[in-house]
């Protein structure tokens, strides 16, 4: 079960990176980056998973019940929110690039312009 999560995480990482490498549109590129990031969510929550484990909420829990790792879950939840705002920043940059150069092709905007 956990190994399966690792394999899917690797697949998400690879397919997202492939999207970034072959991207022809900056918006598409930003979204591919979120796919790559989704692989880290899956990997880390997979690491914290325990068979039959319950959420780390200590209300009426039977003694000795397996509990999943709260540390990785805390990492994930802040990351998801921060990721969204960073994507917004990248999309704002895309808007500006489109305004300056007239297109959104990352291959056409290789040189730095002052």
């Amino acid at each position: 079960m956990t190994t399966y999560a690792y394999v899917v995480a690797a697949w998400l990482f690879a397919i997202g990176l492939f999207g970034i490498v072959t991207s022809k549109n900056l918006v598409h590129m930003c979204l591919c980056l979120t796919v790559v990031q989704a692989s880290t969510y899956l990997l880390l929550t997979g690491v914290g998973y325990r068979p039959g484990g319950t959420a780390p909420i200590f209300v009426n829990l039977p003694a000795g019940a397996p509990i999943v790792d709260p540390v990785v879950q805390a990492l994930m939840l802040t990351d998801i929110v921060v990721e969204t705002t960073v994507v917004a920043l990248m999309l704002a940059l895309t808007v500006q690039i489109h305004k300056k150069t007239g297109n959104c092709d990352p291959n056409a905007t290789t040189a730095l312009q002052g």
């Binding site: 079960m1 956990t2 190994t3 690792y6 394999v7 690491v47 914290g48 998973y49 325990r50 068979p51 780390p56 200590f58 397996p66 509990i67 999943v68 790792d69 709260p70 540390v71 990785v72």
Partner: peptide, 19 residues
Amino acid sequence: IAHMPGPGKMHSPYSRAIN
């Protein structure tokens, strides 16, 4: 992945301490 402990055997000391 091949050298990782099997499912369920991998809980860090931090998670145990915090729980």
